[in-house]
Every structure is written in C-alpha cells, then in structure tokens.
C-alpha cells in the first residue's frame, strides 16, 4: 500500500494522506566500487521508533545519512513527509529543517556557546526572534536536564552533556523526525545512560525516531521495530520480541550471538 502511494506522485511534493513518514524505495549507494546500500526499501510510520542494527560496514549509517541527504543515493527514491529527496534544493532545505540529526561525534559548534549552538538553527533558518529562540533553547535544555550549562562552551562539557546539547540543538528546529547515528558510541559507559534516558523520554513523547545503535537494552525496550542490516541490505526486520526471541535468518542469529 505504501508503494502505491509513493509511486503515484511524479512531481515530488505530495501531501501524504496516510501516516507514512518516510518511504524508501529501492535505493542503491556506491562509494567508488564498494556498494554500501543494495536495493534497500523501508517504510516508517509516524511516531514509530525504528532501531537499525548491523555489524560495522553494513550500511546502517549510510542509510540514515541518506534520509537527510548527507549522502546522496545513486538510484531509487526517498520520500520524507511526502517530499521527495532529489536535486531540488528547496526540497532539501525543507526536509532538513524537518529532520533532526544527532551524530556519533556530537559535532557541536565549538566556537559557539551552548545557547548559540541551539538558537542558531531557529534564528537563521526558521527566522525566529532571538528572544523566542533563547526561550525555546532554555526549555529544551531543561528537557535534556542541563539548563545550567547554557552559557558554557562545548569543550567545557562532558561527552554526555555535549550529546544532550546536540539533541537539544536538533529538537530546536522542531523536527518531525529524529535521526540518531550511534549517539552513544563515543561516550564513556557512565554517560551512556543519561543520553539514553533523554532518547527514551523523546520516544515516549511520540517523536518519529530512527536510531542506529548497539545498545540492545534500549532497542529491546523502546523500539517498535528492529531492522537488521548486513552488506548493505535489509536482512530481517520485526518487533523486538520477534527479533530477540525468534530470529529467522542465519546472519541475524550470528550477529545476535556475537553481540548479546
């Protein structure tokens, strides 16, 4: 049903009537001679929490980076909230301001204070006034639990705090979708929890989330659906129960046996 929906609009911008938030149809991605994504199709509904698993080099990061076009897919089509991701720059900017992204390395802007990191997008892209942007930023900092750090610089914060600022920065654009690219992989163990707690709270609030992670506890507890990537393709997907209790594919079983 989702394929029909996505195939019909030719112009690009469609108002989706169903609750499909992201539609990915048969995308391929090559880095030189290496095929990073091989005929990947996936549909993600609104409010759905999808956790993407897979060994390193399996294409899971490439996949979510394609969803806001940090990587360009070579063939196939991607629709985000009814807008096709293509060479049209207006579409691209529209999508990027609706899709928040959190990176493994935080990628905060080191020359700006925490406050300015968060208000930059709303002020420059959404044309929000400084006062409103700062009010919003303070609310978000409260939400991620570090309002007292607003005037500091990223280098003065711990890794976990930096990642929470990065989440606040992404939320400040009031996105409909949040992408998490291994958000806890660069963190010391004792800081992982504080970031996962924020993500859990975000999931409960109804955000559509796509999370690449190795945190199996988080996946089992929070995810609506798990998607297992290997060698650039979706090998298996299903609910956490299905996935952890009764995996079908040999590669999935092998992966789970190694990681659990």
């Amino acid at each position: 049903m989702s394929t029909e929906q996505a195939a019909s609009p030719a112009a690009g911008a469609v108002t989706s009537t169903s609750d499909d938030m992201i539609i990915v149809e048969h995308i391929d991605k090559w880095f030189g001679d290496f095929q990073a994504l091989d005929d990947v199709s996936l549909t993600i509904r609104e409010h759905e929490i999808v956790v993407v698993l897979g060994p390193s080099g399996s294409g899971k990061s490439t996949f979510i980076r394609c969803l806001n076009r940090l990587e360009e897919h070579d063939s196939g089509r991607i629709f985000v909230d009814g807008i096709e991701l293509n060479d049209d720059v207006r579409n691209l900017n529209a999508i990027r301001s609706e899709v928040g992204m959190v990176f493994q390395q935080f990628n905060l802007f080191p020359h700006l204070s925490v406050m300015s990191n968060i208000t930059l997008g709303p002020q420059k892209v959404r044309r929000m006034s400084r006062r409103d942007a700062e009010k919003l930023a303070m609310q978000l900092l409260e939400r991620v639990g570090i309002p007292e750090q607003a005037q500091k610089y990223p280098a003065q914060l711990s890794g976990g705090q930096q990642q929470r600022v990065a989440i606040a920065r992404a939320l400040a654009m009031q996105p409909k979708i949040m992408l998490f690219d291994e958000p806890t992989s660069a963190l010391d163990p004792e800081m992982i929890k504080e970031v996962l707690d924020v993500m859990r709270e975000l999931a409960e609030s109804g955000m559509t989330m796509i999370v690449v992670t190795h945190e199996m506890g988080f996946a089992r507890e929070v995810a609506d659906r798990l998607v297992f990537f290997d060698e650039g393709a979706v090998v298996e997907q299903g609910t956490p129960t299905h996935f952890f209790e009764n995996p079908q594919e040999e590669r999935t079983k092998l992966f789970l046996s190694q990681i659990l």
């Binding site: 806001n68 940090l70 720059v89 900017n93 990027r96 301001s97 899709v99 928040g100 992204m101 990176f103 390395q105 990628n107 905060l108 802007f109 930059l120 997008g121 420059k124 892209v125 959404r126 920065r169 992404a170 400040a172 654009m173």
Partner: peptide, 15 residues
C-alpha cells in the same frame, strides 16, 4: 575542520 562541522550545519537546515 572535521567534516562533521559541515554536516552538522546542514543537518540544522543551514544552506
């Protein structure tokens, strides 16, 4: 500068 700085800029919607 790490490439992540460009990506973070793009990801918050800056052209």
């Amino acid at each position: 500068l790490p490439r992540g700085q460009y990506e973070a800029g793009h990801a918050v919607g800056l052209p």
